[in-house]
Amino acid sequence: MTTILYSVTGLLLFVFGLFALIVCPHPLRKILGGNVMSAGIFLFLVAASYRADTGEIDAVPQAMVLTGIVVSVCITAVALVLSTRLQQAADQGARRRRKRRREEDAGE
């Protein structure tokens, strides 16, 4: 029962995240969506290894999840820095264009 409950929760989280990743325009929201997606997958994975009746745990999925968490933090960090840098580049572009416009105005 617990296994199924958490499995279904994990899958629903995956789908939520997928939806956000596809639909939302803001990059931070997309990255949040990716994080929710991966959390869902991990929940689904570990829910399998848990057996309420025997109390026995399977360490392999847990190790996989640990690997996955670290990888997803890494991708999150890279994506965040990229989007910050992108915003910065866009701002600089806008500033340069404004400056050029001002110079043109002064020239006329």
């Binding site: 617990t2 958490y6 994080n35 959390a39 991990f42 570990v46 829910a47 290894s49 848990y50 109390g55 745990i57 847990q62 999840v65 640990l66 968490i69 670290v70 997803s72 933090v73």
Partner: peptide, 14 residues
């Protein structure tokens, strides 16, 4: 789900 290692990693990193 009896995964304390993952719980700790999730709290600290995730």
């Amino acid at each position: 789900m009896h995964a304390p290692d993952v719980a700790l990693a999730e709290a600290a990193i995730g």
